[in-house]
């Protein structure tokens, strides 16, 4: 396969995401300008200008009309995807580390960083249907005790909030009361990514401790654990095959002192059930920071420290591959 290289960012990528239909790719990086691309041919549709610092995270509404971005310039911005206009800006005390639309797109959450004497906090806000009536009112605020949250997602039916923390803890919060329902510490390093599988019943976490774990979403019991020999920065589950992809590499600060081959900057494919590595794809010059599967499972996108997004469309041979045990 020949990947499409998207070269619209001048600094390291932080998050890459497909929209629900899979025709658009949204990318944010440390260069403060989020971009949107057509996933089929890599054509850039537009850029969103308004942030003034590293953009850490993004989320897209189900109908792909709104975009939320959280940035280190202490703000979260709601954008109109068609046209790139800024619809609303929430000013925060510290950097925004995670944002997420709730199912139904009526609520959204954002998590602020624990710096400057502030504690890491989950904020829940209402997203008005008519964006001219949008207010900055915070519906709920849950201060996180202990290590700061690096990732956050809405759980099933917006009943819970799943968070990943800097010390490797994964927590489930009650979305109404802010009570910690369950908390497990299976990782020994910071959680770098959390992504749901085909349903919201299970999710995969990746961590700097060289592991990726598939958790059951309610009780946080471990389904599968995948061990590699370098930090994992992102993990994604294929929507159509029992495959998952892991991306990472050694720390960005030591990239220049080691060769690309030693850095292990490949995207690695694992079989979800057999917990075995089945393939790898080379390409990035630096660690991979973020991965996303196309919602149809026909391809994936990876964003690296090298500032490139690589969009891959799988060859036919990928779909034909089966373990002997999978054949009937």
């Amino acid at each position: 396969m020949r990947p499409i290289l998207l070269n619209g960012h001048t600094r390291a990528l932080t998050t890459v995401k497909y929209n629900y239909d899979g025709d658009l790719i949204f990318s944010v990086s440390k260069d403060s300008v989020p971009c949107v691309w057509y996933s089929s041919n890599g054509e850039r549709l537009g850029t969103f200008e308004g942030h003034n610092g590293t953009v850490w995270t993004l989320d897209i509404s189900r109908d792909s009309t709104r975009l939320l971005t959280g940035s280190a310039d202490n703000s979260m911005i709601l954008w109109n995807v068609n046209g790139g206009q800024q619809l609303f800006k929430w000013e925060t005390q510290t950097a925004v580390r995670a944002v997420a639309f709730a199912s139904g797109d009526k609520l959204a959450l954002f998590v602020t960083d624990a710096t400057m004497g502030q504690k890491s906090t989950i904020h829940i806000v209402e997203i008005a249907k008519d964006s001219s009536k949008q207010t900055s009112k915070i519906l709920n605020k849950f201060v996180i005790k202990g290590s700061k949250a690096t990732r956050a997602l809405w759980g099933k039916l917006n009943q819970t909030i799943i968070t990943g923390h800097d010390d490797g803890t994964v927590c489930v919060f009650d979305a109404k009361t802010g009570e910690v329902l369950k908390s497990v510490k299976e990782h020994s390093g910071p959680i770098t990514d959390i992504q749901f599988g085909t349903t919201q019943d299970y999710f995969i976490t990746s961590s700097k401790d060289h592991c990726a774990i598939i958790f059951e979403a309610e009780n946080l019991s471990i389904y599968k654990k995948f061990e590699t020999e370098r930090p994992v920065n992102s993990a994604a589950i294929s929507p159509i095959k029992p495959h998952l992809i892991l991306g990472g590499g050694q720390d960005a600060m030591s990239v220049t002192t080691t060769s690309a081959k030693q850095g292990k900057f490949e995207v690695r494919f694992y079989h979800m059930v057999f917990e075995e590595e089945i393939g790898r794809v080379k390409g990035h010059f630096g660690p991979i920071n973020t991965l996303a599967f196309h919602p149809s499972g026909k391809g994936y996108a990876s964003g690296g420290e090298d500032g490139f997004v690589r969009v891959h469309h799988f060859d036919d041979s990928y779909f034909k591959f089966q373990f002997p045990e999978e054949r009937e």
């Binding site: 998207l6 070269n7 041919n41 850039r44 590595e277 393939g279 794809v281 690589r310």
Partner: peptide, 21 residues
């Protein structure tokens, strides 16, 4: 259409799936 400044086609990469990668 894609702008050649920001969108390029990368070199062919191989993804060979196998049981003992």
């Amino acid at each position: 259409g894609p702008d050649s400044e920001s969108t390029t086609i990368g070199e062919r990469v191989m993804l060979k799936l196998s049981l003992n990668a």
